[in-house]
């Protein structure tokens, strides 16, 4: 699996990280090395093996349907970059 610098830019866009052309080139070198490492997996026959998402074989615990949280808007918005009338402000959302 070989990556191109346009792949890097596409992935970076999906991840919402700005990369310049030079950065994409430099990143490409390092990512290719890491992907080379990852490629070792392809040598293993994993037919029929159940993927392991969690280390313990336990099931989801359920929370009783009770309101336990109170209004902490003031505390949470004290660390927000931009707020107005209790709303978080962002550049205009276009639908």
């Amino acid at each position: 699996m070989s990556l191109s610098s346009s792949d890097v830019k596409r992935i970076a866009h999906l991840a919402r990280i700005e990369v310049s052309d030079e950065e994409a080139e430099a990143t490409l070198q390092k990512l290719s090395g890491i992907l080379g490492l990852i490629e070792q997996m392809q040598a293993v026959d994993t037919t029929g093996i159940v993927p392991m998402s969690h280390s313990q074989d336990v099931v989801q615990r359920l929370r009783p349907d009770v309101v336990t949280e109170n209004d902490q808007r003031a505390a949470f918005q004290a660390i927000a970059p931009a707020v107005e009338n209790g709303l978080y402000l962002v550049p205009k959302v276009i639908e």
């Binding site: 931009a82 107005e84 009338n85 709303l87 978080y88 402000l89 962002v90 550049p91 205009k92 959302v93």
Partner: peptide, 12 residues
């Protein structure tokens, strides 16, 4: 929510 500051949207 639209109609916050000019050019901005508000998030609730």
């Amino acid at each position: 929510v639209h109609g916050a500051s000019a050019g901005m949207s508000g998030i609730d």
